[in-house]
Computed example of a mutant assay.
Amino acid sequence: MMNWVKFIAAFLLALSLIITVIVFYNANGPFADARQKAESDALKSGALTSVDRTDIYNGTVSMVTVFGKDGEGNEKAVFIEGKTGEILDEVEMKDGIGAQAAIETVKAELSVEKILHVALGLEDGHPVWEVAFKGDNGKLNYVYVFFENGEWWKRILNL
């Protein structure tokens, strides 16, 4: 009788593990598809000749930001609308601040316990860095910093 209990417990554990893996794999599918499509669109349009990384940005418009190099070897970020694949804008990385500089701008003024993510996106026609972090009080915060000059655009604090 004890062998049956062990078998059933092991079976249920294995089944729950398999279901969990399948759910997480399927949940990541749309993000992976959006990234792949955006990378393909950026390369096909000629905006980039190589891709380094891709971020998904969900602001007023959902978009995918593709980072890479153009034909002249300049590092660029291309903003691609999530649903249509239309290129909204593109910026050369040398023309603005980097992700680490955006983080330092936030840390200089606010108490940051843990950085959750930093993403480059487009808001009101301007590229901005979205810095999401947990403050010392454990609450979620979003700060938007202009890409061009590192000045604050918007803050959403203590969620």
Rank of each mutant, 00 (worst) to 15 (best):
A102L: 07
G29R: 15
V143T: 11
L140C: 00
N137V: 04
K134R: 13
K139D: 03
F133E: 11
E86C: 02
K44P: 01
A99G: 04
Y144A: 04
W129F: 10
K107H: 02
A132K: 15
T20G: 13
E148F: 08
L88A: 10
T105V: 09
K107W: 01
N3Q: 08
G29L: 14
R53E: 11
D89G: 06
T20F: 08
G82E: 10
G121E: 01
L48P: 00
G68V: 06
F147P: 07
K114F: 05
E123H: 10
M93R: 15
L17T: 13
A101H: 08
P127T: 06
V78C: 06
G82M: 12
V91C: 04
F67E: 10
I80K: 08
I22R: 12
V128T: 05
D95C: 06
L120S: 03
T20V: 08
L159A: 13
L140V: 04
D95A: 12
H117W: 06
I156C: 05
P30N: 02
N141K: 00
K69R: 13
A108V: 04
E104V: 01
V23K: 10
V66T: 07
G85A: 03
L122G: 02
V21M: 06
A38T: 00
A108C: 07
I56P: 00
K139A: 09
I97Y: 02
V51A: 07
A101F: 01
I87S: 01
